[in-house]
Simulated scan of single mutants.
Amino acid sequence: MGIISFQGARPKVKKQRNLQIKVSDYMTTKLITFKPEQSVMDVINLLVKHKISGGPVINEQNELLGIISEGDCIKYLNESRYFNMPTNDATVDRFMIRDVETIDGNASIFDAANKFIATKRRRFPILKDGKLAGQISQKDVMKAALKMNSQHWRDM
């Protein structure tokens, strides 16, 4: 006597392994940006007002010059208090990070996740034709994960 199954036929699950979810699909394009000649106190006010942790520094041609973050601003505040310096004359140019890692907008969201893990960065600017096109943050990757969760994250 053979084995009888009460489950019936199971539908075949289609795996979507080749589905590429790009960084450009989840990047932020409406960015708060800063200028090199802008005061650090102005940056601090904007970071607090917009509840962001940093942003790109660009020139008039929308070319990326650097990044300024909360950490850079705290460094400035610490130095200004320690050396009893005036707080209104320090500019972004002096405190920004110039060596900025970027990520390709055509990279997969999983490549971005791996790059975040490897570098411990909070954000990566995306350039297109040498100009700032957007920015991807760790939070954007998490938003992508939530959106894809209903589409069987494991099968991606």
Rank of each mutant, 00 (worst) to 15 (best):
P125M: 11
K22Y: 06
L132Q: 09
W153T: 06
I97E: 05
K51N: 11
K131V: 03
F95Y: 15
A112M: 01
N78K: 13
D104W: 02
N18P: 13
R154N: 05
F83M: 00
T87Q: 03
V23S: 01
Q138R: 15
N88T: 09
F110Y: 12
Q38A: 02
G134Y: 01
Y82H: 10
I97G: 03
V57K: 07
I103H: 04
K14T: 15
P11R: 11
I97F: 08
K120V: 02
Q7K: 15
R17I: 12
L64G: 15
E60F: 03
H152W: 14
A90D: 04
P11T: 15
Q38I: 05
V13S: 09
S150G: 14
L77F: 09
K128Q: 11
M96R: 04
K14F: 11
A9R: 10
G55M: 08
I67K: 01
S53A: 09
R121L: 03
K115G: 09
E70P: 01
F116W: 03
N78S: 11
I32G: 08
S137N: 03
G130E: 06
I44L: 10
M27G: 03
P125G: 09
E63T: 11
R121Q: 05
I4D: 15
N78L: 11
K49M: 14
K139E: 00
K143Q: 02
K120F: 03
D93I: 07
R122S: 15
Y26V: 00
L19G: 01
S69K: 06
P11N: 11
E79S: 05
L65I: 10
S53H: 03
A112Q: 00
K120E: 08
A9T: 10
F110K: 06
G71L: 10
D25H: 14
L31V: 02
H50E: 12
T87K: 09
M1T: 13
H152D: 14
T87G: 02
N78T: 14
D99W: 00
K22W: 04
D89I: 01
I3F: 09
I52L: 10
V23P: 00
L146C: 02
Q20M: 11
S5M: 12
E60K: 12
Q16G: 14
D42S: 15
Q138Y: 04
T33Y: 07
L127I: 12
K14V: 15
E79I: 04
S137I: 00
Y82D: 10
F34L: 07
K35P: 06
M85D: 12
I4M: 10
I136G: 00
D25T: 07
K128R: 12
I74C: 06
K30D: 13
K22I: 01
I21S: 00
R123H: 00
N149P: 02
F83I: 06
